[in-house]
Design a protein around this nucleic acid. Structure first.
Lengths: 176, 176
DNA sequence: TATTGTTATACTCTATAACTATA
DNA sequence: TATAGTTATAGAGTATAACAATA
């Protein structure tokens, strides 16, 4: 077999399949999130905020890999929707302390239901044992590459890229 | 454990890990491709063209999920670099037949070497047996979701998204 | 009339760099 | 002087809609 045929090791290797399936999974999840009127980055902030309440905007922007300047309107929208809350920090009046509101917590629970459904749909082809096996293998790879749990590189772009009509494939890149 | 804590099933599930690792793998591969002065979409076309020579621009744009209008300058650049060739189709003079040049074939072989290195680096944490096991599981999932072999959703965007300086993390989304 | 390749334009989103207020 | 939050602006990249040539 000629090496220059773009052979199976390139299209069927684990690395390519990871990239391809990862984008697919992220896109499907983004579709589901759209039903909750959330982008992947917004969902990421809600989850992150539930576990790290009271952090400043600067810290949160760093956590999610976003620019502070873009983080401002990003937070604005969620605050206007009553999902998160900006509290002034009395110790240092330059800082905000961001918190989830009760409404934000409600939406987060709905989000977790969606994520659980999504998980099952993606791994539908596997048995329960294989599903666990896959998770374990992926977690080991993620650990070795020192990926932060729960932080997706795609959060960097708060807005999903528009895809044209036809198939309902929103957000074909990585965020989920 | 409270469901609303953004618990482990959301951050450690296979679906999220797939999206996270997929974006990571795609980003790392994009960095390596930059060494060959190629974007992921360009690499995808070279590989696809090696196995599907003589197709029209319209067909190739459909294959890669790109808009025909954006496919034009996309092909222009590769043609100017002498990597691919537009041949007029004598049967239907509206169509071009795209082919890889010898130079394009050379670059493709270099690309496959890069892909092989990349594959090993991504799966470095796994034994040989586990690596094969992972590939098999991923392929079954990809088959069930009817993903086209070798076609990445990220090809839709021919240009990688710019990320800001610091860490050399080009293309954090899905294309590879 | 439909289709291929092409071009032009309007629009969306982003990074950069200022600016303010606090420290 | 340095930092948090904010705002404004210039630029990159895209989808949409036209267009000419050919069928």
């Amino acid at each position: 077999m000629n090496r220059a045929d773009g052979g199976p090791e390139a299209r069927g290797g684990a690395a390519f399949l990871l990239a391809q399936l990862g984008a697919h999974a992220a896109g499907r999840f983004a579709e589901r999130l759209a039903g909750l009127d959330l982008t992947p980055a917004q969902a990421g902030l809600l989850r992150h905020l539930a576990q790290n309440p009271g952090r400043s905007q600067r810290e949160l922007a760093d956590d999610l890999g976003m620019l502070p300047s873009r983080f401002v309107p990003f937070v604005d929208e969620l605050e206007e929707r009553g999902l998160i809350e900006r509290r002034k920090n009395p110790r240092d009046r330059r800082l905000y302390a961001l918190h989830l509101t009760p409404q934000g917590l409600d939406l987060l629970t709905a989000l977790l239901d969606v994520a659980a459904d999504h998980e099952q749909q993606i791994c539908q082809a596997l048995t329960r044992a294989e599903h666990q096996q896959l998770s374990a293998l992926l977690r080991r790879i993620a650990d070795q590459h020192e990926l932060s749990p729960g932080i997706h590189p795609g959060y960097r772009w708060s807005q999903p890229r528009r895809s044209r009509g036809g198939a309902p494939t929103s957000r074909a890149d990585g965020a989920g």
